[in-house]
């Protein structure tokens, strides 16, 4: 098991300072606050939560697109949070990213061939002829024909663009792919195509995914394990089926119950939460969820809860279980 560990995130913190005036000193926002998790080879880990919960920041910090304030990001045994320059660029070959908006993630002035050969070029892989051969093969894998090589992104539909973005991430045969809401911007009929493609590529290239999404139906379909975040903190982590069958944290319960039903004949006992996610600039004391929590106790506003291991794989951070 230990050998299969691809990524280990240890006590990751990412704080920002926001300026709310010209002369006042900035306010500190704890975008990610003390998050730890591991990802093992070949699995898909979902990172879910609502806007502002820090899931995207976590993803970008894992990729070293922003520097963590503190904590370790151990990838294949090395802490990459301290790497710079050439060493970091070498690691980038092994961790890739897929973005939400396929209209923004492709350079509008480059042809598909240029976009797809660039990663190979950057890492000095193969000669020119072999690169193009690789690109053609990749296009075939993602279900597009060679005719697209000379096209520009604005000649493609959203779904086709997202395929290209996925191909760009996969062409270096990375170990880990961070997918940040990869299907949220797509039309419903295209979403299923892209999800199928992601699963197919995982199988073919033995990929490991960190799948960031707010769409719980999609997450349930594609992931093996799920990490739920709320206001910069991890609140629960469990295997997907177990989480959906038996959510422990009151927030997870509310979140799962809020998923729209799939058929009008279905019935859910919805837990409608009061209020909204508080501002991360002024997070509540103690447990960040206590103000909205239907099960809140006295202690919840006073002390921050600790992680409780309910089983080997099911963890939650809540006073109810300590």
């Amino acid at each position: 098991m230990e050998n299969d560990r691809v990524l280990q995130v240890v006590n990751l913190k990412k704080y920002y300072t926001v300026n709310d005036g010209w002369f006042s000193s900035g306010q500190r926002v704890k975008a990610v606050d003390d998050v730890s998790f591991s990802i093992y080879k070949g699995e898909t880990v979902g990172l879910v939560g609502e806007s502002g919960c820090g899931k995207s920041t976590t993803g970008r910090t894992v990729l070293q697109l922003s520097q963590p304030t503190s904590g370790k990001i151990i990838f294949e045994g090395t802490d990459i949070s301290k790497l710079k320059g050439q060493e970091l660029r070498q690691i980038r070959r092994r961790i890739q990213m897929i973005f939400q908006d396929p209209y923004a993630s492709l350079d509008p002035h480059k042809t598909i061939q240029q976009i797809l050969t660039e990663p190979l070029h950057v890492h000095h892989l193969y000669d020119k002829k072999k690169r193009i051969e690789k690109v053609r093969k990749m296009l075939k894998t993602i279900g597009l024909t060679d005719t697209y090589l000379t096209r520009y992104p604005n000649e493609l539909s959203g779904g086709q663009r997202q395929r290209i973005a996925i191909a760009r991430a996969v062409i270096l045969h990375p170990l880990l792919i961070v997918a940040d809401e990869p299907v949220s911007a797509l039309d419903v009929s295209v979403q299923a195509q892209v999800i199928n493609l992601l699963m197919h590529l995982q199988h073919e290239f033995q990929l490991t995914y960190l799948f960031i999404s707010h769409d719980l139906n999609v997450v349930r379909h594609i992931t093996d394990r799920i990490i739920v975040m709320y206001l910069g903190k991890m609140v629960e982590a469990a295997p997907t089926e177990e989480l959906f069958r038996d959510p422990k944290h009151p927030y997870t319960r509310a979140l799962l119950s809020a998923i729209p039903i799939r058929n009008p004949d279905e019935h859910t006992d919805r837990i409608v939460l009061n209020g909204e996610v508080p501002s991360p600039v002024y997070p509540p004391s103690g447990c960040p969820f206590h103000e909205r929590c239907p099960n809140a106790m006295d202690i919840c506003s006073k002390a921050a809860p600790r992680q409780v291991n309910l089983s080997e794989k099911h963890k939650t951070i809540c006073h109810l279980y300590s």
């Binding site: 990729l63 697109l65 970091l88 660029r89 070498q90 980038r92 070959r93 961790i95 890739q96 990213m97 973005f99 939400q100 908006d101 923004a104 993630s105 492709l106 350079d107 509008p108 002035h109 480059k110 660039e118 990663p119 950057v122 890492h123 973005a165 760009r168 270096l172």
Partner: peptide, 24 residues
């Protein structure tokens, strides 16, 4: 995002500037 995608691929700063920012 396409610039961030370049960074994530490992493209160097100068290359990003010349090959991606300048044409845009």
């Amino acid at each position: 995002e396409f610039i961030i995608a370049c960074v994530a691929t490992g493209v160097s700063g100068w290359e990003i500037m010349v090959k991606h920012i300048l044409p845009n």
